[in-house]
C-alpha cells in the first residue's frame, strides 16, 4: 500500500472503530429493542468493545510498523488531520445538544447515554473518512 504510516494509522482506526463500535450499536440496539433499560446492563458490553478496540488498534499499528516505514507525521498529515477535525466536530456538537434536549424532556438516561456515544462514534467516523479522502484525492 502506497501510504504513509499516518495514513495507514487512519485506515486502521477507521476499520477498527467501524467494526467494534458498529458491532456495539448492533448488539445494544437489539438489547434496547428487547426492552432493556438499565444502563449498567450495557457496561460489560461497552467494556468489551473498548478492550477489543484497543487490542485491534495496537495490533494494526504493530503490523503497519513491522511491514513498512514508521515516519512520524509531517505538515501534510497535520493539515489533513486539522481539516478533517474542523469538518467533523459539528456532529459531536449536535449530539451533545440533542442529549441536553433529551435530558430537559426527561428522556430515559439509557437513551441519552447512547445518543452521546452515537454522536461521538459518528463524528470520529466522519473524521476518519474525511482524512482518508484527503489522503487519496489530495486537496
Amino acid at each position: 500500500m502506497n501510504a504513509s504510516f499516518e495514513e495507514k494509522s487512519t485506515w486502521i482506526q477507521l476499520v477498527g472503530t467501524t467494526l467494534v463500535l458498529g458491532g456495539y450499536f448492533v448488539v445494544a440496539g437489539r438489547m434496547l429493542a428487547a426492552g432493556v433499560r438499565e444502563l449498567p446492563a450495557f457496561v460489560p458490553l461497552f467494556v468489551v468493545a473498548v478492550v477489543v478496540l484497543v487490542a485491534l488498534l495496537v495490533a494494526g499499528h504493530v503490523v503497519a510498523a513491522v511491514t513498512g516505514r514508521t515516519d512520524s507525521g509531517d505538515e501534510r498529515d497535520r493539515l489533513i488531520g486539522w481539516r478533517a477535525e474542523a469538518r467533523s466536530s459539528w456532529l459531536l456538537g449536535v449530539g451533545v445538544l440533542a442529549a441536553i434536549t433529551a435530558l430537559v424532556l426527561d428522556v430515559d438516561r439509557v437513551w441519552v447515554a447512547h445518543l452521546l456515544l452515537l454522536a461521538l462514534f459518528l463524528s470520529e467516523l466522519l473524521r476518519f473518512v474525511l482524512q482518508v479522502v484527503s489522503y487519496r484525492r489530495g486537496f
Binding site: 504513509s4 499516518e6 495514513e7 515516519d71 507525521g73 505538515e75 501534510r76 498529515d77 489530495g138 486537496f139
Partner: peptide
C-alpha cells in the same frame, strides 16, 4: 524532512507545500 508520500503528493499536484 517530510514523508515520501508527501513528496509524491506535491509532485503530483495533490498538495501545495508550506
Amino acid at each position: 524532512g517530510v514523508t515520501r508520500q508527501t513528496v509524491n503528493a506535491i509532485e503530483g499536484g495533490k498538495y501545495s507545500p508550506s
